[in-house]
Design a protein around this nucleic acid. Structure first.
Length: 272
DNA sequence: AGTGTATCCTGCAGGC
DNA sequence: TGCCTGCAGGATACAC
């Protein structure tokens, strides 16, 4: 579910409220997210520690605690974090509670149970984090780097952009919006992109992500912010989910095709 | 290196 | 109303 802008929104909101607060007790109502790590080890690794900071890497949430420990979370499709007064009983889909020393609860909820929570000595100790590619909103993401990297791959642009080892944090929705912004077809082989087109793509990646973050992400079904509010970027989508509706630019009906068993939306006229 | 498939899990919409 | 199928914003492992 959440892609970079959604995870960034959640990280910022948690960073505003968590640092300084301690974990008194960890309660696990369903242990799928722990991926086989024994419940007791997970609890011991967190209880008595204090949150220092919350950051994002790709679609991962990184919680830094002291004494030194990292809680590394991936929300996958339907995971979310909520900070709430302690409920009497865990509501449906609450999987893990981090009970804080001031009585509040940081609740990890996950309808589909695909999200993961890992305990690590450092973020890079989590293989998925170590494999992340360049952060698209940081200085290392340049036009030249993008043009070079694209030239080495025959994969369709959509597939290339979705790959977390290339650019960290892009998913189905934002790849669709980015390719529309760049005027490039998701079906194009990466290596056929010219330097000029790569420059447009580079700009679209940054512009779409920054706008989506400014709108606190896209809520289509499950995504919610820490305070349960929705994002707003769904009101600004140009192609995602708009199959059959006219392109905002040229009125051509937006096409839906399936790539890698995922829906791809694009304008066959504006995107070449 | 690339593609295609299956898998984890639950809920919902649409067709019949 | 109820059953069945396919689909959902993610990522990985596997075969070819």
């Amino acid at each position: 579910m959440p892609e970079l802008p959604e995870v960034e929104t959640i990280a910022r909101e948690l960073q505003a409220v968590l640092p300084g607060r301690g974990v008194r007790r960890v309660r696990i109502f369903r242990k799928d997210a722990l991926q086989g790590v024994p419940v007791a080890r997970f609890q011991k690794g967190l209880e008595g520690r204090r949150f220092q900071a919350v950051r994002r890497r790709g679609k991962y949430l990184l919680f830094h605690l002291k004494p030194e420990a990292w809680l590394v979370a991936h929300l996958r499709m339907t995971g979310k974090f909520a900070l709430t007064p302690r409920p009497d009983a865990p509501p449906l889909h609450h999987r893990v509670w981090f009970e804080l020393d001031d009585g509040a609860v940081l609740a990890f909820q996950d309808l589909r149970c695909l999200g993961t929570l890992e305990l690590a000595g450092a973020p890079e100790a989590v293989p998925g984090v170590a494999a992340m590619g360049v952060e698209p909103l940081e200085p290392g993401f340049t036009r030249d780097w993008l043009a070079q990297a694209l030239s080495r791959s025959r994969a369709p642009l959509k597939h290339w952009l979705m790959h977390q080892g290339h650019i960290a944090g892009l998913g189905n929705i934002y790849v669709a919006e980015i390719l529309f912004g760049a005027g490039l077809s998701p079906l194009r082989a990466a290596a056929t992109v010219t330097r000029e087109e790569a420059a447009r793509l580079h700009q679209a990646v940054r512009r779409v992500l920054m706008r989506a973050i400014a709108k606190n992400g896209t809520t289509i079904s499950d995504y919610r912010r820490v305070d349960d509010k929705t994002g707003d970027f769904q009101n600004f989508l140009r192609v995602y989910g708009r199959a059959g509706q006219p392109c905002h630019t040229c009125r051509t009906p937006i096409q839906r095709v399936v790539q890698q068993q995922r829906s791809t939306f694009y304008c066959p006229t504006c995107q070449r």
